[in-house]
Amino acid sequence: MSKNMTHQVHWQRTRNLTFITLGIWFVFAFLIHWFGAELNQTSFLGFPLGFYMAAQGSPLIFVLLLVWSTRRQEKIDDECGVSE
């Protein structure tokens, strides 16, 4: 594969990973909080679920999401031979 081709493949995979990451981000940043009142009907660890998600759940998921996506990205970089 030429250098240009590997770069193209690398960018395509990077882009797909970014879209997936932002998709998950969108769900926990906006979508679930839109339905906060409905979620609050359910209880989780003793918390009303809507309150829990805004106070802890979403931030925690953001941390885990970044750990996951950074690992994935490093693997993509390695496999395409473009890591530093």
Partner: peptide
Amino acid sequence: GYGYLAFIVGWTGGYVLVNSL
């Protein structure tokens, strides 16, 4: 109360954008 938690969600989730974009 709950309404103010928007700051907690916003000020953490912004780092997903910083990292990805």
